[in-house]
């Protein structure tokens, strides 16, 4: 419960800050986009790992920042080398995001089906007890 309130407040305050922030030069917006993709990937990774009860705060925070910074650094390096590394980064991060989303989806689908099976089993048990 506290967690959701924290996320909500974070969203609102973040949106306000983002709208009022001075404009970022267009040249750097490419780096920023890569950083955002990396951060989002970390967030989805965190959600899926927390569903699997493997969530670790340190790994999440370090992944969040280090992935973003590394992605930016790689993009910079790619520009220096005249290779579109940012494309590779985008592919990797988006692929991982889809993987994580798939994990989350599978978790909830299994949960719902499990519940139904359990309900059915309970119903049959009750009936057998009555008889």
């Amino acid at each position: 419960m506290m967690l959701f309130i924290a996320i909500l407040i974070g969203c609102i305050v973040g949106a306000l800050i983002g709208v009022n922030i001075p404009m970022i030069p267009y040249t750097y917006s490419g780096y920023l986009a890569i950083a955002i993709i990396a951060a989002l990937d970390s967030v989805f990774g965190a959600i899926s790992s927390s569903l699997q009860k493997k969530f670790d705060m340190k790994i999440f925070i370090s992944g969040f920042f280090v992935n973003a910074i590394l992605a930016m650094a790689l993009t910079y390096l790619g520009q220096k080398l005249n290779v579109d590394i940012h494309l590779a980064a985008v592919v990797v991060f988006v692929g991982r995001m889809f993987n994580n989303l798939g994990t989350i989806r599978r978790y909830y689908v299994e949960k719902i089906t499990d519940r139904k099976i359990i309900a059915k089993a309970e119903a049959t048990i009750k009936e057998s007890k009555k008889q």
Binding site: M2, L3, A6, I7, I9, G10, C11, V13, G14, A15, I17, G18, V19, I21, M23, I24, Y26, S29, L32, A33, A35, I36, A39, L40, V43, M57, I61, F64
Partner: peptide, 28 residues
């Protein structure tokens, strides 16, 4: 509480950067 605060801060940072980016792309 520690975890909640950190997650709130991280969310704030992420959303702030995203909105800044949206604004930049839109206004450029």
């Amino acid at each position: 509480i520690y975890i909640v605060v950190i997650i709130g801060l991280v969310t704030m940072l992420l959303v702030a950067v995203m909105f800044a980016q949206f604004k930049t792309i839109e206004e450029t």
